[in-house]
Amino acid sequence: MKLKAFIQSAENHPTTLAELRRAHEWAETEQFLGLYAYATQSGAIAFDLAFGSDFWDQVPSQWLFGIDYGRTQPQALRFLIERSNVEVRIHDGAWVVERNGFLPRRDFHMKAGFLTNSTKSRFGMVVGSGNFSSNGLRQAAECGASLHAATTMEFKKTFRSAFRAAKDLWEAATPVEDILDSYEERWAASAALEAPEPEAPAPNYDELEVFWIEAGYVTRNRGPDKPGNQIDMPRGMNRYFGFNAPDNLAVNSVIGEVTFEPPAGGPVTNNLRLGNNMMEKISLPIPETHGFDMYDGKVLVFSPQGGHYRMWALEAEDFESAFGHRLASVRVTKSGRRYGHIE
């Protein structure tokens, strides 16, 4: 058996996602079982980018997630169940979905993936601290280990008992289809970021120090194997960027130039324009060259600095922890993405 420990984000060490991919290629996976405490939209997109349509088409996969405390995003669950050969279950889901705050009877903290090929007697396991979010799978500082058993006897002596215990958890769990509509409804109603009353006044844009928008799903404008970097924003959001576009602006007109200051790679200047769908479109800095892993499922945060805009891409939970107590009015796009400013 081969065992490899790694520290994600350390130089010359792989990511959790890369180790999952390596185990998959070695095992020529016939069956995948993934168990994670929670799932985010960014995690689902990151996995999809790394494994591609061939994985979904060729490998039956079973997924077990927790919804403890409402950390799992319904968008992530819907994305996964729309793939081929996928079954998703929720740990103690029928009970947790009915509890205020989605409080569990017992916390579900699993973070493991099993990749098995019984025909060729190859068995892989990747376990660690990273959850099923883009940060947990490839960006944040995490630790983990991958195990490869090349014979059935090796598998039996090492992690077969863990695999069987994981299967038992999955078998006992609630099919996601039984509770997803209810979970999504209750999750949205309990979200910390609540929409304002319709008559909420517009902010004084000249005085804003921080504003934000949920990216949602980002179209893969750079190709199917790369995270997208072009997002739509609601009509009028140009005011947050210091413009005042007229209401009768023609489609495909350039509203102005926006210069971003991302965490790495230097400033990037792109046009903000009005698209054919009457949304305001902007191309953001290329994720992999400017300190981001992706924008999908993240909350984009902007801070005006001398005519430029410093920016961050945060997981929703991290955004709410950092800024939830400072939110001013929260607005909602027609597609349900939220945005606003921070006081």
Rank of each mutant, 00 (worst) to 15 (best):
G228H: 13
N229E: 15
Q230W: 10
D232L: 06
D232P: 04
D232M: 05
P234N: 04
R235C: 09
M237D: 01
M237K: 00
N238H: 07
R239K: 12
R239G: 04
Y240Q: 02
F241V: 07
F241Q: 03
G242V: 05
G242R: 00
G242T: 09
F243H: 02
F243G: 03
F243Y: 13
N244M: 06
A245G: 01
A245M: 01
P246N: 00
P246V: 00
P246I: 00
D247V: 06
N248W: 00
L249N: 02
V251T: 05
V251H: 00
V251E: 01
V251A: 00
S253T: 07
S253C: 03
I255K: 00
I255P: 02
I255S: 01
V258R: 01
F260E: 08
F260S: 08
P262F: 07
P262Q: 09
P263N: 06
P263I: 09
A264Q: 14
G265I: 12
N270S: 13
N271G: 11
N271A: 14
R273F: 14
R273P: 07
L274G: 02
L274D: 01
L274K: 01
N277K: 07
E280P: 04
K281T: 01
I282G: 00
I282D: 01
I282M: 03
P285S: 01
P285V: 03
P287Y: 02
E288P: 02
E288T: 11
E288A: 09
E288C: 01
T289D: 13
T289F: 06
T289G: 02
H290F: 06
H290A: 03
H290N: 12
Y295I: 04
D296C: 14
G297R: 06
V299T: 15
V299C: 10
V301A: 09
F302L: 12
F302K: 03
Q305I: 13
G306N: 13
G306W: 04
G307H: 07
H308W: 03
H308T: 14
H308N: 10
Y309V: 02
Y309W: 12
W312H: 15
A313N: 10
E315P: 12
A316S: 11
A316E: 11
E320Y: 06
H325W: 15
R326G: 14
R326H: 15
L327C: 15
A328D: 15
